[in-house]
Amino acid sequence: MSEASARILYIDDDEGLRRLAERALSRRGYHVETAANGIEGVAKAEAGAFDLVAVDHYMPGQDGLTTLAQLGALPNPPSIVYVTGSDESSVAVAALKAGAVDYVVKGAGGEFFDLLARTFEQALGQRRLILAKDTAEAALRESNARLEALLREVNHRVANSLQIASAFVSMQAKALTDPAARAALEDTQRRIGAIALTHRSLYTSESVDTIEMDEYLAGLVRELERTWSTPQAPRKLALSAEKVALKTDRAVSVGIIVNELVSNACKYAYPAGTSGEVRIALARDNGDFLLTVEDDGCGLDPAAAAQGTGLGTKLIAAMAGSLRATLGYDPVPRGVRASLRAAAA
């Protein structure tokens, strides 16, 4: 918007001053319309798009401040310059507080119109900057919305692909007769499921880069309980999780650690054919989070040979390293209590 193409509305009850203002501003390249009072001026501003409106303070029937308030309430309000008398500084201050971009001291000489034109130029320049800022922000919001939609779609496709991979592994496991090989593939399937669940959480949530861990762990624990709890060996998994939001890669690491610790507890903590409980807790602690997995089983025997392939232990150590944390085992009267502390950010 250039000054030459700007549309100006000049509202003043003084007919002579209106005519002078129209001629003076038109010579400076503005497209000028006038109104004899505030009511007429608001009606014209509502009917046509003006880039700037000049409003006189003293007018019969409706003063300038009332007119200013009505102009400011329009759906797309114009910039407003307030016109006051030389001894009306308090009125000018009130107008600025009410939304006017500037004010000009009223007069009938050439200096007044020069000052009015310069004030218009500054007000229009400010309006251009505001419009450019609004346009840039709108474009940025639109771009962010597109990127978020794309990221959700990516997470959706990744989750679906991981589910397909999990189904393939499950089919392969069922086709095997070697119990050790079948168990290894079933462990792999659960690990894939833990990662797939993070991507599913991302595309179904408001956030596209963080995961609410209480909701994520609730879904993971349900899946693990369905896997490990059988009529012959019931396993109750109890979760207590506070609201903790983690970035995707950190959430994946926590999910894999929980998967491994819970799976180990379900497999090794309790004798075959007996029931048992595994408790998972996630709590805030200042800027950190504290993860614990606990059972009431047979405990760890340091002298006993390691059970399983040892891959789970390596995965836990690797995931803890990615979180810049160390998994430790707390002394408890019965069973095993594993704990991990890491920064939430």
Rank of each mutant, 00 (worst) to 15 (best):
T292R: 10
G273I: 01
A269Q: 04
G287D: 14
G287C: 12
G276P: 03
Y268V: 10
R279W: 08
G273M: 04
A305V: 14
T274P: 05
V278G: 02
G273A: 01
Y268A: 07
Y270A: 02
E277V: 07
G297T: 05
T274L: 07
L291Y: 01
D295R: 09
A305Q: 13
G297K: 01
C298V: 14
L290M: 08
P271A: 14
T274F: 08
P302K: 05
L300K: 09
T292H: 04
E294H: 13
T274A: 02
L291A: 02
V293D: 05
Y270T: 03
D288H: 11
R279N: 10
E294V: 11
S275M: 12
F289N: 07
Y268R: 09
R284S: 13
A305R: 15
I280R: 06
N286I: 03
A303T: 10
A304N: 07
L291C: 04
T292N: 06
V293F: 06
L290K: 04
A304V: 11
T274N: 09
R279A: 11
D301N: 14
E294D: 13
L291Q: 05
A304G: 08
D296T: 11
A281H: 06
L282N: 03
D295E: 11
D296H: 10
A281F: 07
G273Y: 01
D285P: 12
A304M: 06
G287Q: 15
A272W: 07
F289K: 08
L290F: 03
A272T: 12
C298Q: 14
G276V: 02
R279Q: 12
P271L: 12
F289T: 02
A304T: 08
I280D: 03
F289S: 08
L290C: 07
E277Y: 00
Y268T: 07
T292S: 15
A304C: 08
P302H: 06
P271I: 12
G276Y: 03
F289D: 07
E294M: 09
E277W: 01
R284A: 14
T274S: 15
Y268M: 11
A283T: 13
A269S: 13
N286Y: 05
D285E: 15
L291N: 00
E277R: 10
D288N: 14
L282C: 03
E277D: 12
R284T: 15
V293H: 01
C298P: 00
A304E: 13
L291D: 04
G297F: 02
G276S: 05
A283V: 11
A281V: 08
I280S: 08
V278H: 00
R279E: 12
L300S: 04
P271R: 11
A272H: 13
N286Q: 10
A269R: 00
G297C: 03
L290N: 05
C298M: 14
D295G: 09
D288Y: 08
A283M: 10
Y270N: 02
G273Q: 00
A283K: 14
D285R: 13
I280L: 08
L290E: 08
E294F: 12
G276Q: 02
